[in-house]
Amino acid sequence: MNFNVNSTFLYGVAVVVIVFVLAQSTFFLIRAFKRGKELGISTEKLKKTIISTAVFTLAPALSILIGIITLSKFLGIPLPWIRMSVIGAITYELPAATSTANALGISLSETITDPKIYTAIAWVMTLGILPSLILPPILMKKIQGGMLKMKNKDQKWGDLFMTSLFLGMISAFLGMVFADIRTGIAGWIPIFVLLVSAALMAVCGLLIKKFKWLETYAMSISMVGGMIFACIITPLLT
């Protein structure tokens, strides 16, 4: 069998994985939507959640597509497509591929033609991420049970605990934005982008009182606004 990183067979495998992901997502979406209605959440609110999230997802999804483009130079399209549609992310897949290539003493500058190298990379990518799939079902009961116990014991602390989790995540990413400022003015660009995005969100927050529909798109407007600002300011400061 002649090996080709973009063969019909590999595309076929990718399609099977993509159909699985879509089926699982649709299954959970429908169940949660029905349960939301039973809990008395208005259909309008549920639909708004879907539309708002769908619009908000577009820009990050395009950045994931860039990940596929990067990896496709040496792995073809189907394998990166599979990896980016399931648990993978470019921040993981690239080190996994590089580590395997280094172990085999090859360079990742051109398309892989040896199927054994290709499968070695595919195995490392798959096995390296396996705990993220195996651990949730094993640990779920313990984690959620612990959360429930804490909430029953002290409702207020339970709420503060949840808020703290999200704030911990946000603070790590906001801190990261400051990492490059010692490199000069170009290092300030992410901070300017952050401030513009925050300012746009604040303006949206004020306008929402007058224009209710804006609530659905506020997050997307601030994010895309920040990204457009980055395109304008970067050539001026670098």
Binding site: A59, P60, L62, S63, I66, F166, L167, I170, F173, L174, M176, V177, I189, P190, I191, V193, L194, L195, V196, S197, A198, L200, M201, A202, G205, A218, M219, S222, M223, V224, G225, G226, M227, I228, A230, C231, I233, T234, P235
Partner: peptide, 18 residues
């Protein structure tokens, strides 16, 4: 630059609210 700055653009808006 738009995609290089996607995280600050995302967490700026989300951060100010939260």
């Amino acid at each position: 630059p738009a995609f290089d700055n996607i995280l600050p653009a995302l967490f700026g808006g989300l951060g100010i609210v939260y």
